Simulated scan of single mutants.
Amino acid sequence: MFDIGFWELILISVVGLVVLGPERLPIAIRNVARWVGSVRRMAGSVKDELEQELKIKELQDNLKKAESMSMQNISPELQKSVDELKQAADEVQRPYDSTSKNDASQSTKEP
């Protein structure tokens, strides 16, 4: 990420030691390390979410392409994508179906 060499690290350490002192320097280093770790985790989670969104977009495009071809004469790869998308849509709908059924049964029981 940053192109920091050995001598730059030595210079930063000496300046930090002079400015913060030997008592506060280890605490400052721990805080900076935590901050860098949290930034890396956040960047990783954003990257994962973007990859998932791109995959969903690709599956949606494949489904639209298959629908435009009227599901006739499609390649096996495209048929596999359509099946995966349908399965993913069913899995997403299942939690909502069970909660809507529970809500409907509870609303009929309430006065």
Rank of each mutant, 00 (worst) to 15 (best):
M1N: 09
F2C: 14
F2S: 14
F2L: 15
D3C: 09
D3L: 15
F6I: 15
W7Q: 15
E8S: 06
E8W: 04
E8G: 02
L9T: 05
I10Y: 05
I12A: 14
V14P: 03
V15M: 08
V15C: 07
L17A: 08
L17K: 06
L20C: 02
P22H: 02
E23A: 12
R24V: 02
P26D: 01
P26I: 02
I27D: 10
I27H: 08
I27V: 13
I29S: 01
I29H: 05
V32S: 08
A33P: 00
A33F: 04
R34I: 12
R34L: 12
V36K: 10
V36N: 05
G37Y: 02
S38L: 12
V39T: 10
V39N: 11
V39W: 09
R40W: 08
M42S: 12
A43G: 01
G44M: 07
V46A: 08
K47P: 01
E49A: 08
E51T: 08
E51P: 01
Q52D: 09
K55M: 11
K55A: 11
K57S: 09
E58Q: 14
E58W: 05
Q60H: 07
N62K: 07
L63M: 05
L63V: 05
K64A: 09
A66E: 03
A66D: 00
A66K: 00
S68F: 03
M71A: 03
Q72G: 02
N73C: 01
N73I: 01
I74A: 03
S75T: 04
E77G: 06
E77L: 09
L78K: 00
D83C: 09
L85N: 12
Q87H: 12
A88C: 06
A89E: 13
A89M: 12
E91Y: 06
Q93P: 03
Q93V: 08
Q93K: 11
R94Q: 07
R94S: 09
P95E: 02
P95G: 00
Y96K: 05
Y96N: 08
S98A: 15
T99W: 10
T99P: 02
T99L: 13
T99H: 08
K101S: 10
K101F: 10
K101V: 07
N102Y: 15
N102D: 15
N102G: 15
D103N: 15
A104N: 10
A104H: 10
A104M: 12
S105D: 11
Q106Y: 08
Q106K: 13
S107Q: 13
T108D: 13
E110A: 12
